[in-house]
Design a protein around this nucleic acid. Structure first.
Lengths: 205, 205
DNA sequence: GAAGTTACGAACTGGTCTACCTGTTTTCGA
DNA sequence: TCGAAAACAGGTAGACCAGTTCGTAACTTC
């Protein structure tokens, strides 16, 4: 059995401290987002997340001293993914999207994802929590600012045009409302029909 | 001090058992809804609600054996108020509303209320809880069915017209999305601007 | 007005969660 | 290579909460 003794936990490549930290943090954040979608905010506990992430509770609490730290980091990761993916590989300075394309892009890349609902639940749950709430809002505003500016350009509007900005806000509100509808409604087709109807109406406006 | 002994807890009018029950149930439901708005779903505990409602915990648990029973009853009360108030004293068989009037009526009577956001939070929080979730959904569907049918008639559509129904769903989705926006956004005027923009667009469609 | 029923009050219990704390292993820097 | 520091592992304490139990008070019925 000397062979087993010499190569015990299979291949364990040497990692830097930064890599070790990042790996645990990623695993925890990913597990948190997954749990938000699967079991909901209320069920989330540090113990559950540690199990899901295949990480000891000690490692988790070392990286995230408080439960809020963990939730904030997970939220930050999600928003970061939105931020990185936007505007879907396009160059807003050169390209412009038709209304239909914009709606599809926003819907498919952000609002249709179960993670969007998870984010909504988190935001709603934290809307009164001064500590968690403020942290989440701070993360949101920077992303929202970028998102809105790029979106206005994508549809060919002037960045400083209040009317164009309002139109973008309405687009986002409509998709948000449909996403919420979808999360309650049993018929998955309704969302698509609503999207199509909104496209028809938005085209004329 | 014989006077004090003879009239101890001030004036205590004689109530029937039904009245006593109804009074505690009402106080608890009202406190629950208020707490949902003020401190959010996560903070709600039977202890907190009993305190807010000025009711002993024993009285609460007697009326609502489980915490879910309490939440369901509160939700039922809220939906009941919507149901009773709808369609805002109008007769949908005789009267019809312009698009502007419909939007204003829906917004002012339902979506602009902080309780609507509270209901959303409750629904989102319960979306994974099979027991609470099903109970809330059951309460919702009966109200939604009535709401949608009346709304379609209010705008002069045929009840069985799928297109008219879809339009109503879009109206509701837009207002829902704006309501969510409002609960996060710091500027309270944005919601009004979005409503106005939506009116202009909806008028043309 | 007495027995029975319902509403209420208060204390207790079993379980869970967060934050903290003490050792151990891995990596880093000189 | 060796001491320091960071990452990790696991356990504990204190608080809280939902549900239960049991005794008391208010109401109802006959």
């Amino acid at each position: 059995m000397s062979d087993e003794a010499k190569s015990p936990p299979a291949a364990r490549p040497r990692r830097t401290q930064a890599e070790r930290s990042q790996e645990t943090r990623n695993k925890v954040c990913e597990a948190t987002l997954q749990a938000l979608v699967e079991v909901g905010y209320e069920q989330i506990s540090t113990t559950l997340i540690a199990q899901k992430a295949q990480v000891s509770r000690g490692a988790l609490t070392h990286q995230f001293p408080t439960r809020n730290d963990m939730l904030v980091a997970a939220f930050e990761k999600l928003v970061g993914e939105w931020r990185e993916g936007y505007p879907f590989g396009l160059d807003p300075d050169k390209e412009q999207l038709s209304v239909d394309e914009l709606i599809d892009a926003l819907w498919n890349n952000i609002f249709a994802d179960g993670r969007y609902i998870a984010a909504m639940e988190l935001m709603l749950a934290a809307r009164q929590d001064n500590e968690l709430g403020h942290a989440l809002r701070d993360i949101l505003v920077s992303w929202i600012r970028k998102r809105d500016r790029i979106t206005v350009r994508l549809v060919g509007g002037d960045v400083d045009d209040a009317e164009a900005d309002l139109k973008v806000q309405l687009h986002l509100s409509v998709l948000r409302g449909i996403a919420m509808h979808q999360s309650f409604d049993s018929d998955p087709q309704t969302a698509n029909k609503l999207i199509d109807l909104w496209k028809r109406i938005a085209r004329k406006a």
